[in-house]
Design a protein around this nucleic acid. Sequence first.
DNA 1: ATATATGCTTGTATAATACAAATATATAAT
DNA 2: ATTATATATTTGTATTATACAAGCATATAT
Lengths: 143, 143
Amino acid sequence: MNNKNAVERIEYELTTFIRRAVYIDNSENKIGNLERASYLILRQLDEFGPARVKELAESFKLDISTLSRQAGALGGKGLIERSSDPSDGRVSLLTITELGREKLKADKKMRLARYQNMLETWTSDEKELFGELLERMNKAFFD
Amino acid sequence: MNNKNAVERIEYELTTFIRRAVYIDNSENKIGNLERASYLILRQLDEFGPARVKELAESFKLDISTLSRQAGALGGKGLIERSSDPSDGRVSLLTITELGREKLKADKKMRLARYQNMLETWTSDEKELFGELLERMNKAFFD
DNA sequence: ATATATGCTTGTATAATACAAATATATAAT
DNA sequence: ATTATATATTTGTATTATACAAGCATATAT
């Protein structure tokens, strides 16, 4: 039953974490940062290169229409560029712009700083282990 | 710099996790479960006893008006009861009902099952350690 | 050449949220 | 005691993220 307790604790802590993280995201938006959705999109485009709307929607498990609007907003702010795929006129390819990269970098820096601060008393080993466990958990989440 | 990499990984994995967890929460609502907000409120009332609206709002970092409406909804479904505090007529005390407890239990069971399933290949030690690290992280989040 | 499928956008509805105004009650100041 | 101020909650209104459905443009298959 100790096993169950451990899982219960994990569930409890993760649920709590989500609530707080969502709060922080929302309150920080108000002082001029990227919302979580924009951050995720830019991060994805930066890391894996241009992508189409549908691809991103699937990746984030959001409706295509939602992503279409988000892409519109990011385009309006000049953070991404939308070019049409020469091999398929229906597709609009999204590419991160230089400005987008800058914003992403700044945003990431702030986010990292928060985590760094939060984990400053941890040993390197603990941080590495925690990262590994999180990664494994997320991979398991895929199924 | 390995330290930075570890923190980067943690940030990356947690951000990804939030996105997926929110998705799962939303899709499960559609097959008749408690939304995350209701779940958190009931969990809190179950664990720490009756609370006032303001208290819950602060605890979840939501506006009082938001919590007032959520309390209204939970009351409407019979999951909580609202009594007025005898020592202060302004205050409305929220108490989880028997039905609320049942729903909470059922919901928790489902959530735990998902985590249990997700972590089934982990050793007990890994689960315990992960739980501890999460708890420490959340505590640091408080500041 | 026409019908069907696909990718995206736009219209519309819903839900969670914040902020502001209103209401009820409590506390403080004169 | 009466009046002013503070506090707890509710209700009105606006905003935002989202999904679903309809529409439009382009591709593919018959």
